[in-house]
Design a protein around this nucleic acid. Structure first.
Lengths: 337, 337
DNA sequence: CAGTGAATTTACAGCGCTGTAAATTCTGTG
DNA sequence: CACAGAATTTACAGCGCTGTAAATTCACTG
């Protein structure tokens, strides 16, 4: 049995193809009588509209691409969950694209080999430079997420990373910590994320009147929990002394907690720790993790708003919006008593 | 500037549309000379093939849907990561669909409103019954993942949940534990997942010659870490005594670890714990979590194999394949010494 | 019941691409 | 250099749908 098409339904219902199309899409100016008859035919034939045909005719696919390095990273998976839901509310489906955090992967996305597949792209770059992103042939509506470089021509949403890192750092200072380490940036060249968070950390130290001690910057061979844990172990074994750690992200913080516990250090008594992203696990580990919570719902909503505006034809300069964050205090770096 | 189409390239290169199409798709019988000329034109015009046009003509979209309740659940996000990569290797993109773990959500997927969008579906149902899945109009190739009901007409891959739960349970028994609890199944009606794992737990007790004590079944108001932690707290506060817990999944186990630590119980000395799924965090928490590790790579590979076979026309009965699992031993329930 | 404007329905022409089968060009041979 | 057979290229139709504009029907009014 061949697939039923619009024409088949039209034949059965005794109307034109276009009328069936109108019924399917809920066009309002269809008489009740014909609507019923057509609907009957649709049900009888179990008609399912063909997505490709529709998008070819309308020029829209109803799909958005969400691009980042790796969904298995908790922050991204939680972001994907949220954006998928919000997009779904607006009638869009979500195509997932992973770049593996490689330059080639990100380039591939930006130079989008196929057109017409998605109506828009939400992209959180890890490595790509502002310049390269700007070169992006402006065919597909595009929104950037995150702290990375922000070319003028492209819409961009973020939180104030510098302020957030400073907030975490000065909170630790207010807890009386004097040797506050930073954990989890790359060993070699820094991602934009690490850069801005390090700047904020430095600002926080300044505000608290603490000196910047470069030996307190604990880099990690790669940005993940395992390597971060290893980096902390090595730092401790080399005799580095600190009483607090500002972590680049929650994964680094989980690694830090693990390493500290292995070495018999108590959190927060001996070392206080803050994370970043406030992923679900942050509240579940023991001790629970204080963390910077970006207002992801607002970020996602703005991103979708901007994308829809571009899809609807807006073609002006890039908009940049900054969402709120909050330092959520839990056991690993509690409120000042 | 209107988007460049195949015809535009053809005009510039002075060949037919079909030849351009052949070049774009790497068809082998194209002379080197024309290929070069066409490629030049493609580059000059920055031509990008239109996905909708192509899929309309070929009847294939090059996309697969991956469907489960919620990407933000670590097991699913890790699965999505893996499947996305494997699918990408085979030239497919991945469409993410979340059902929120609701019956309506799952029904919506099975009765797929739109045709032609994806070439196949990988579906991990949480609630849907075998009967309902079987009713699925067999238009789109379909593979089921997980321990759920498995209608004969549909392909299905899984691990042996009963054996795995039994393995975890008897490992705890071998550690000398005598009051082994089960944590994390639903309070009311059980999902298939909980059912089979409970059966395996029971088998494991039997093998070890331990009695089944219903009071050791610690249900959770909802299947997540927070509620699981709460359930364990309440159980402890009501004086329930146990020296080991088999958890329905890693999230429940994280909840359990948290609750036990809050109440001052040592893991594994006082209570040994096993999880299920071996998500990345299992190795990072303190103490690290022993967990059932399903061979997800094999699961995913088989699922894609079967899907591709169906896409290529196979129309026989459903195949059912069972992949391996492994009980990974870590601190929370170490190897027998 | 003709006449009017509004509501409903229709015919038609593509959207951009590829499969088919036929046309053309090329290659090597005698 | 003619010719068969292979290699390359092309014309054409149509995948399933919707936008447009025109055609038809409807509901009232006078």
């Amino acid at each position: 049995m061949a697939k039923t098409r619009l024409q088949d339904v039209a034949d059965v219902a005794g109307v034109s193809m276009k009328t069936v199309s109108n019924v399917v899409r809920g066009y309002e100016h269809v008489s009740e009588k014909t609507r019923l008859r057509v609907q009957q035919a649709i049900d009888d034939l179990a008609y399912r509209p063909n997505a490709s045909g529709r998008s070819l005719a309308t020029g829209r696919s109803g799909m958005l691409a969400l691009v980042f390095s790796d969904v298995s990273i908790p922050y991204y998976s939680e972001l994907a969950h949220l954006i998928s839901e919000l997009a779904s509310d607006r009638g869009y489906r979500l195509l997932l694209e992973q770049t593996s955090g490689t330059l080639e992967g990100e380039r591939a996305v930006v130079s989008a080999a196929e057109g017409g597949l998605v109506d828009g792209v939400i992209f959180q770059p890890s490595l790509l430079s502002s310049a390269e992103i700007a070169q992006h042939r402006g065919d597909v509506p595009f929104v950037l997420l995150g702290e990375g470089p922000a070319p003028l021509s492209v819409d961009h949403v973020m939180i104030d990373n510098i302020a957030a890192a400073a907030a975490a750092t000065s909170h630790l200072a207010r807890l009386g910590r004097r040797r506050i380490a930073f954990l989890g940036h790359e060993l070699g060249s820094q991602t934009q994320t690490s850069k801005v968070r390090l700047i904020g950390y430095q600002n926080g130290l300044e505000q608290a009147g603490l000196p910047l001690d470069l030996s307190l910057l604990i880099a990690s061979r790669s940005v993940n929990a395992g390597e971060s844990a290893q980096a902390v172990r090595e730092a401790l074994d080399h005799g580095l002394e600190f009483d607090a750690i500002v972590c680049r992200d929650d994964l680094a913080a989980f690694g830090a907690l693990r390493a500290l516990q292995e070495r018999g250090l108590r959190v927060p008594e001996d070392v206080a720790v803050t994370g970043w992203d406030d992923v679900a696990m942050a509240a579940l580990v023991h001790p629970s993790l204080s963390s910077i919570r970006p207002d992801t719902r607002t970020l996602a909503t703005w991103a979708l708003d901007m994308l829809e505006e571009r899809i609807d034809g807006y073609d002006g300069i890039g908009r940049h919006r900054v969402a709120d964050f909050e330092l959520v205090l839990r056991e690993s770096a509690p409120a000042v008593s």
